[in-house]
Design a binder for these strands. Structure first.
Length: 554
RNA sequence: GCGCCUGUAGCUCAGUAGGAUAGAGCAACUGCCUUCUAAGCAGUAGGUCAGGAGUUCGAAUCUCUUCAGGCGCGCCA
């Protein structure tokens, strides 16, 4: 057993199901949930309301009837009551809450873990920033989101692979080459023109300068093709290494860095295009190869340009085919910016065309980050080079704050990130509130340990001494972790966990102000010490899932 | 024009596969440090859930519609 709440829900479901049967009604599906108002009990079943339609009786009467058939000899159930529209409310004794202390002791850093994934192999592909430049705020959000999703899924029994897709071929590489070449030639004292459409950022100048330092100006006299090839090879590797370093600093370590160029080298792009044509999903028109869209309203998409060069879309289809067919993932999650949403239906349809179940592909659309400067929207553009880079961001607000901040809101909601505010706000940042709770707990444990009062085993405490409201609230919140993690895994929303962490911290801070741990009575001290240690374990586990540090001192 | 997303307290956002009296954090106001970290706590105030209609025991949640904002609709990625 790894989830107390679930265990009780199952018991109640059983009891109510049995009651429905005993009362002579057909089985009906209903839910057991936690009422928001505690006066409505610890758990509540809506079976009578669900049954009302079939039984054609008022829910309130049905609830009364069912209540008579519920056996209350269950260990935790104290009493059962029927409330207004027809809820059957269960009031429990405190034993179940105390058991959470045993559970956290037994499971420790596994508390919250589940096996809902049943070992399914899932790939999470995220960030996948163009290697032509530095990473920006959008990548920062995508990184925090994707990595946390991967951690949550791994904790929930999935076998997870984290992957970065490197777009190391195609148009933007051409542009990258031309940009580097111009900067290099300029550094060699040659008056090379620079197109406005090229990458204007300083990082391009940096790469060119580094290249110059390494090779001198010997490439200035070589054929352009050879020069560009060398520059791109150099610039790409350099940029990729910078990205790896930055992401690693951001606590993101990928299992696989997958190169787009590999799909061309292996012939998979060509093969996939051939397959699409054979199956009748692609056709020639005006010299180009087109992908037939699923319905007439939608426009068809070009796979291979008239000049013979495949589009990004073609490579992406081959890439996703590779994920499923070559590597056999049960599920693939892509984290994309919301500006790519038009791509989702097409990609799923392409999978269908290739005979792959499109439901195995799940795309998490993330609203782009809108960068604000003191209330004024600042447009981010990689081309103009004016974007705030991930490096600068991490430097200014810290890794913990960034990881926490970018996971505070649902992926689908817009996110205004005010840089000026974030910088000056460092002490009112919500992440400190949560970390402070953890540090406070560690501090108490540390001080008591100096007096040789150590966290006792569950078997050594009298849990019934914990009877303050603040203590119950804290226990109750701790008991919610497994549900929260599972919900985060199912909805792919790590933001649930930042909220949960904040709520747990709130309950702890309230407890801290209401109850002292270091009290005269050794028995009460032991029980409270056990309680805060369970809180510490729970906080540490949830923070680990979003990769935020749980400091022992602040 | 067509499609997707968003609209909840002054601001930023939650709201759990319809559930009970719509929540939190900032900001505002009033209190709490001789006691384990005040980066904290307790309390007050703040709402036509964008508007309208429908579905039913019951709607912020589902359907339809209007309005407002964002994004997409390239032989770009």
């Amino acid at each position: 057993m790894t989830n107390i709440k679930q265990k009780i829900r199952e018991q109640i479901t059983c009891a109510v199901t049995a009651a429905i049967k005993k009362a002579g009604y057909d089985a009906v599906s209903f839910t057991v949930e936690t009422p928001r108002e505690r006066t409505n009990g610890d758990f509540s079943a809506n079976a009578a309301m669900a049954l009302a339609k079939i039984a054609k009786k008022p829910p309130f009467l049905l609830a009364d009837e069912l209540k008579e058939h519920i056996s209350v000899d269950e260990r935790y159930i104290e009493r059962v009551e029927v409330a207004r529209p027809g809820f059957i409310n269960f009031y429990l004794n405190n034993e179940w809450l105390y058991e959470v202390l045993l559970l956290t002791e037994k499971l420790n850093d596994s508390y919250g873990k589940s096996n809902i994934g049943e070992g399914a192999r899932v790939m999470v592909e995220f960030v996948s920033a163009n290697p032509t430049g530095l990473m920006h705020m959008g990548n920062a959000r995508g990184g925090a989101l994707g990595d946390s999703i991967a951690r949550i899924l791994a904790f929930s029994g999935f076998e997870v692979t984290k992957e970065f897709y490197l777009n190391d071929s195609g148009n933007q590489i051409e542009k990258f080459a031309l940009s580097l070449e111009a900067r290099y030639l300029q550094l060699c004292g040659i008056d090379a023109p620079f197109d406005e459409e090229w990458y204007q950022g300083d990082d391009i100048k940096d790469r060119a300068a580094e290249f110059l330092k390494l090779h001198g100006d010997k490439y200035s006299g070589m054929p352009a093709e050879k020069r560009r090839e060398a520059l791109v090879k150099f610039g790409l590797e350099k940029n990729i290494n910078i990205m790896k370093k930055t992401l690693s600093d951001y606590r993101i370590d990928y299992d696989v860095w997958f190169r787009e160029s590999a799909l061309y080298e292996s012939g998979e792009v060509e093969e996939t295009l051939k397959l699409l044509q054979e199956k009748g999903y692609a056709y020639q028109k005006e010299g180009a190869l087109w992908f037939k869209s699923s319905d007439d309203d939608e426009k068809d998409e070009v796979l291979v340009r008239a000049n013979g060069v495949p589009t990004y879309f073609a490579a992406d289809i081959a890439y996703h085919r590779n994920k499923f067919e070559n590597r056999g993932y049960d599920k693939v999650i892509d984290v994309w910016g919301a500006d790519h949403h038009g791509h989702v239906a097409r990609m799923k349809y392409a999978m269908e065309a290739l005979g792959i179940n499109p439901n195995k592909l799940e795309v998490v659309l993330m609203q782009l980050v809108r960068l604000m400067r003191g209330g004024e929207a600042a447009r981010m553009s990689k081309r103009s080079g004016k974007a705030i880079t991930l490096d600068v961001l991490l430097d200014e607000i810290g890794i913990d704050a960034a990881r926490f901040f970018f996971n505070m809101r649902n992926a689908g909601s817009h996110f205004d990130f005010d840089l000026e505010l974030a910088v000056q706000q460092s002490n009112s940042n919500p992440v400190f509130y949560v970390q402070y709770a953890h540090a406070r707990i560690c501090s108490i444990i540390r001080l008591l340990a100096e007096d040789e009062i150590l966290v006792p085993p569950y078997s050594g405490i009298d849990a019934a001494l914990l009877k303050d409201d603040a203590e119950f609230n804290l226990l109750r919140k701790i008991s919610e972790l497994p549900d929260e993690v599972s919900a985060a895994a199912q909805t792919l929303e790590p933001s649930r966990l930042t909220r949960y962490a904040t709520e747990l911290a709130t309950e702890f801070h309230s407890f801290y102000n209401a109850c002292r741990v270091n009290v005269e009575s050794r028995k009460l001290c032991d029980a409270r010490l056990k309680l805060i240690d369970a809180t510490r374990i729970t906080l540490a586990n949830v923070l680990k899932l979003i990769a935020v540090d749980a400091p022992e001192k602040m």
